[in-house]
Design a protein around this nucleic acid. Structure first.
Lengths: 112, 112
DNA sequence: TGTCTATATATAGACAGGCTATGTATTTTG
DNA sequence: CAAAATACATAGCCTGTCTATATATAGACA
């Protein structure tokens, strides 16, 4: 009933947060995004790999992100992502929709 | 990609809003809840029957709501719901979790 | 008379995103 | 030398929302 409430709340907002961070950080990679979101949210968000990597793949597949493998001598390579023009458009739209949504929820609860 | 973003945002919050309204209105029924949520949110939320009725059934099945058929001479009967003790506990918990969640999202976006 | 809208509820099946679990590989820490 | 951290990947499960359809009545409108 409530165990996975956070997973439900997350739904949809994962894309928004990924796009937001990648836009702001210019270029970053999956693992770093997970840590950065945890850091910024003071430990509230602890994204699962099974959530983030498939989401990044989908965003790239849809042309909202551009990914690039970067070899690092000896170490495991990373896939760095940057946002595309189309990605930035979607980001702005989603940001607005999140604001509208949370404002509407506030109206239900009677928050001035 | 974005068509059903609102449906995603809604996920999880439907229960919260239903419990909140039923608690506040003491006793109400599905159709009225749909209209009241639309009214309060100034048209933002337009809950679908296929969302609300199954959700009410689940909440009752789990003991968070108590439902009761009320016949009205000649007219179609309504199923009136009221919140249970357990429902009120879950409501308070979910309300807090929604606040935590939206605050955490704000942290990601750098909102003071 | 027939059709449409509003009121009021119900449900089967589709859809899709997040999670669990598991796997690979390397480096660092204890 | 084992464990933890870094870094990525994916198959399959779970579940809430939506679409579509169904039933039933009342009132409007033509």
């Amino acid at each position: 009933m409530e165990n996975s409430y956070r997973a439900d709340l997350l739904r949809g907002n994962t894309d928004l947060m990924l796009l937001f961070l990648i836009d702001q950080m210019k270029e970053t990679y999956g693992y770093e995004i997970i840590k950065e979101i945890e850091r910024r949210s003071k430990g509230y968000f602890r994204f699962k790999e099974g959530t983030v990597y498939p989401a990044l793949h989908k965003l790239e597949r849809n042309g909202l992100l551009k990914g690039e493998w970067k070899k690092r001598r000896g170490e495991q390579e990373r896939r760095y992502y940057s946002i595309t023009e189309r990605g930035r458009e979607v980001l702005l739209r989603k940001l607005g929709m999140w604001e509208d949504f949370s404002r509407a929820v506030g109206l239900i609860f009677g928050n001035a």
